[in-house]
Design a protein around this nucleic acid. Structure first.
Lengths: 182, 182
DNA sequence: GTCTATAATTGGATAGAC
DNA sequence: GTCTATCCAATTATAGAC
């Protein structure tokens, strides 16, 4: 039997999950979260221990892996890049928040977890061979680099480039790690 | 005629240039900088206006582009990747500090400047053709992705991988953007 | 369980004497 | 130009009443 009204803890969690990806760790105060949740600021700390603990508990992907990328492996590179480039919602905010907060040691493992969940695993599970993991991690580095260029650096030239051309070129590079030309 | 004793302004600048790359923007207080420089904290603000101005003035590459990568263009991909992967000193700290501080709007242009100076331009000046800039920027994204994976995410699998194998694989991908196979 | 009030720290920035 | 002293703002976190 779960409580009928979502307890304040869930309201706080939801508020944090909404605000952190938009305004970042530093840009989101405990008071902001409490205000968004409609509760007293003291309850935030009381329920989660500290701001950082709340941040870490909120910045995870859980199951929202979205599509399973189960199409033909010959198109996986392009498909995957296209999905990542066009993702403008939650994953983007989480990526930016985690990267920018990665000065705190506690954040790095969580960033690694997001990186593995969102970038590495979807590719790795489709690959075979002894160096499958290495190739998947290199491909994940490629994808991360594109997101870094577009969202962190905000490379205007890339942002203004033709999307389909971008996806085609970059996807082809990723594809080479997935299905290397003999 | 330059002053015989380096003025305190230079001492402050040197201290900031030393501490920011190591401890980051948030992790470095004005008092830390003053302590390192052996001056009064008030002089830091007095000479540079604000902490952020000092940060922005310090986090630039100026001329320390190091080697000019003037070898044969057929090896540029590998050479460039090798150089970036093995760079453990100043550029690495600056990259991390700028990326992690990029939540401040004023930092993004400086990050873009570093990105262009260190990653894009050395490649772009060797390329030709109408889409030379796009290819150089895509190659820069690749390089940025490798640094992101190794230094921000701290992907242990990549960090423990054989360096020469890593450089060879990743360099080959960069190379394809520099000299595309017909 | 919830809220009021406040503690405690930190850090950026300023005023004014010397 | 340099330093002492201080201000001020913001924020996390806690204590204790209800």
């Amino acid at each position: 039997m779960s409580p009928p009204h979502p307890p304040t803890k869930e309201a706080i969690r939801a508020a944090a999950a909404k605000l952190f990806p938009v305004h970042g760790y530093i840009g989101t105060s405990v008071r902001d979260i409490a205000g968004e949740a409609g509760v007293d600021p003291a309850l935030v700390i009381r329920n989660f221990g500290s701001k950082e603990e709340l941040f870490l508990e909120t910045m995870r992907l859980d199951d929202e892996l979205g599509p399973l990328f189960d199409g033909p492996i010959e198109e996986l590179g392009e498909t995957f890049v296209e999905y990542m480039v066009d993702t403008t919602d939650r994953l983007r905010g989480m990526f930016l928040a985690l990267v920018r907060a990665s000065e705190s040691d506690g954040v790095v493992p969580r960033l690694r977890e997001m990186h593995d969940t969102a970038f590495v695993l979807p590719l790795q599970e489709r690959l075979e061979g002894p160096d499958a993991e290495l190739r998947a991690r290199l491909a994940a580095a490629l994808v991360g680099g594109l997101l870094y260029s577009m969202w962190v650096v905000q490379d205007t030239h890339l942002l203004q480039a033709d999307r389909s051309d971008l996806v085609k070129r970059y996807g082809a590079l990723v594809q080479q790690l997935l299905t290397p030309p003999s």
